[in-house]
Computed example of a mutant assay.
Amino acid sequence: MKNIDASQQKILELYSNYVLRNNKKPLNVFTFCEDHEISETDFYFYYANFEKLESDYLRFFMEETLRLIAEEENYHQQNAKHKMLSFYYTFFEQLTMNRSLVIYLLESDKNNLQNVKRLLPLKKDFQLFIRSLDISEPMMENTTESMAKIERLKNKGIEELYWGHFMATLKFWLDDTSSNFEKTDIFIEKSVDTSFEFLEVKPLKKLVDLGKFLFKEVKNNR
């Protein structure tokens, strides 16, 4: 794995092998370390518990995806929609290569993924990626504090909207039984396309513009 040392990689590999063979967590950190001749001190140096360790797998798939798409020819010249498609196709390719592990990590919670704590670090990374696409509009220099609050609320809404879409795609992939998960690819294409059509209509921008107008009118009429 990227950005980890040999000791941490050993812990992750031993843990993934254990849960895939036994379909359950080890009894506790002590037994896991004793069975694999690892120092508990070494384990706790990296992870406070098994849940923190499990979230590292999902973050790795995210990091690896971002690294791979950044290396694609002309990626940085592509528009936001094509960058998002590249991200989705590459991310779910990473998951497919590790499907057994991902199913173990998420299967029991797949109907309520929004509340899975181990996904929170992944959410932060994903929202940073969404911000990098510049889907949201920058605030103008003369923006008032009230207008700025509306802009921040709109931008946060866009991030939450796409996180919900990401969770829906993950759930679809977990349930997908089609050959080579081709239905997930179709879902990605159609849903990303629809989401950008929604943004191009700019209902949120129109709402913000209305808010700006109302604030201006209230200020002028004081």
Rank of each mutant, 00 (worst) to 15 (best):
S108P: 06
N79Y: 08
S100K: 11
E72C: 07
K83A: 02
L85P: 02
L133E: 03
S55R: 01
F92D: 01
L68E: 15
F92N: 02
Q94V: 00
Q94E: 15
L133F: 10
S136D: 12
Y57R: 00
N98F: 10
H82N: 14
F87S: 02
P121Q: 06
Q127D: 14
R99P: 08
E107H: 15
E73K: 11
F60Q: 13
F92A: 03
L122K: 03
T90P: 05
E71F: 10
K52V: 12
L68S: 10
S108Q: 13
K81N: 05
Y89R: 11
K81L: 12
Y75G: 03
R99K: 13
L68N: 12
V116P: 00
R59N: 12
M62H: 05
F87K: 02
M62K: 01
S100F: 04
E51T: 12
V102F: 06
Q77V: 09
L106F: 05
L68K: 12
L120S: 10
K117I: 12
Q127R: 09
R118S: 07
F126H: 04
I130P: 01
N49D: 15
E71H: 10
L95P: 01
H82W: 07
E137I: 07
L113V: 08
M97L: 14
K52G: 04
D56Q: 05
N74I: 00
N112F: 10
Q127Y: 08
T90E: 14
R67A: 10
E51Q: 12
I130H: 04
N79L: 08
I135P: 03
L68W: 03
F126Q: 03
M97K: 14
N111C: 07
S86Q: 04
Q78A: 14
L58F: 02
K83E: 04
K81F: 08
F60W: 08
R99N: 11
E71R: 10
I130E: 01
F91Y: 15
F87G: 00
H76E: 14
Q94F: 06
L105I: 04
R99S: 14
L113F: 07
E107S: 15
N112S: 15
Y89S: 04
Q127E: 15
L128G: 05
Y89C: 05
D125I: 07
S86T: 05
L101E: 05
K81W: 06
N74R: 07
E51K: 10
E72I: 08
L58R: 00
L53I: 07
R59D: 00
N74E: 15
E93F: 12
R118T: 12
K52L: 09
F126G: 03
R118G: 01
F61P: 00
N49L: 08
L122R: 02
F129N: 01
Q78W: 05
E107N: 15
R99V: 08
I69D: 01
L113S: 07
Q78I: 04
S100D: 14
Y75L: 09
L106S: 04
R131Y: 12
K117T: 13
N115W: 06
K83D: 04
E93D: 14
L119I: 11
M97A: 14
F61S: 02
D56R: 02
P138E: 00
N49C: 11
L85W: 05
Q114G: 09
Y88H: 13
A80W: 11
A70L: 08
L66W: 05
E72S: 09
F61D: 00
A80C: 10
F126T: 03
D125T: 03
V116F: 01
E63C: 04
L120Q: 13
Q94K: 08
K117V: 13
S55L: 04
L119D: 00
R67F: 11
F61E: 03
P121R: 03
